[in-house]
């Protein structure tokens, strides 16, 4: 039982940077960034390949840089070349498939055999005992989360937030919205890639299909987190991304253990949850309107 709990937390924290990235792109910038699937695998591939070559720490930074580059391409397509934002993400994502294969030496997977990972290095320091993996990931994620909260309070962070809230106002404040979108998507995809890098080193392998549907799972995490923590300030948004990710893995573990839902159906269930959660405000409005019409019909 304790083992399951530990794994749940480990996975939840490792994947937490994805809902955090989506918080930036989907909530703050109001852009559905479909680069996410590809940049997750990109981070994983770069991280595992570099760790296998003996550079586990540099691997994390390299993964983030590559993720940022992927975000830059998506941003470039939509801000400079007029590609609709969703399509821009899909195009980059498709291209990344080949890039990811290349990053793994033209193979569909890569493994770290006996080389060190950040986790084995940290364990050898003797801190945290059996919880050392969780501890290290939690520290990294906490640092990133703190940096994001700090960033959203800066002048650049404020203009990023305004981009998603009222884009006209950004250009009226002498800031180019194309610039804020680019910065935002670079950061978001760097975070996604970092998540991939952590997962990759933790399971000592990377797989070309590891990212399939991860953007939907990330959104599910974000929405679950927002339901638990309520939407509000930026700090609360960052917190809800992390809480949501852990909660999602918890639900996943329960489903796995109890088999309420066959595990093969989990992606379908996730998709339905996300679709319902995003559609909920509209559904509620329609229902309320129908009730009014029926009531008016009875009275009239």
């Amino acid at each position: 039982m304790l083992y399951i709990l530990q794994t749940t937390f480990e996975l939840g924290v490792q994947y937490a940077l994805i809902p955090l990235a989506l918080f930036l792109s989907f909530r703050v910038l109001d852009i559905a960034d479909l680069t996410t699937d590809g940049s997750f695998v990109l981070g994983m591939a770069v991280s595992v390949t570099l760790a296998a070559a003996g550079h586990p720490i540099a691997a994390l930074f390299a993964a983030m840089l590559c993720g940022a580059l992927a975000g830059f391409v998506t941003a470039l397509l939509q801000t400079r070349f007029g590609v609709p934002s969703i399509l821009a993400g899909i195009v980059t994502n498709t291209g990344l498939y080949t890039v990811n294969l290349m990053a793994m030496g033209w193979s569909s997977n890569a493994t770290i055999l006996r080389q060190a990972t950040i986790y084995t290095m940290f364990r050898s320091l003797g801190i945290g005992g059996r919880w050392s993996n969780l501890l290290l990931t939690a520290v990294i994620v906490a640092l990133v989360a703190a940096a994001i909260i700090w960033f959203l309070g800066t002048r650049l962070g404020l203009s990023l937030r305004a981009t998603g809230d009222n884009r006209d106002m950004v250009s009226a404040s002498s800031i180019n919205p194309a610039y804020t979108v680019t910065v935002g998507l670079c950061i978001a995809n760097a975070l996604t890639a970092l998540s991939g890098a952590l997962v990759g080193q933790s399971q000592r392998s990377a797989d070309i299909n590891a990212g399939t549907g991860i953007v939907v799972i990330g959104l599910a995490c974000l929405i679950i987190g927002e339901t638990l923590c309520r939407r509000g300030s930026m700090a609360r948004g960052v917190l809800s991304a992390i809480v949501g990710s852990i909660a999602y893995r918890f639900i996943y573990a329960v489903v796995l253990k109890t088999r309420i839902v066959p595990i093969e159906c989990l992606k379908l269930v996730t998709a339905i949850i996300v679709a319902l959660a995003i559609a909920m405000p509209t559904i509620r409005e329609k229902l309320a309107f129908n009730r009014r019409v029926r009531k008016a019909g009875k009275e009239g």
Binding site: F151, T154, R155, L158, S159, R161, A162, D165, S173, I175
Partner: peptide
């Protein structure tokens, strides 16, 4: 059209004030 509804009055004003701060760091 001229304001960002989900941001506070203070944040809106500081955005508008960005027009002056050519010398200030974007990370301040």
């Amino acid at each position: 059209r001229g304001t960002a509804p989900h941001m506070s009055i203070e944040e809106n004003l500081s955005l508008a004030y960005l027009r002056s701060s050519s010398g200030k760091s974007p990370f301040s």
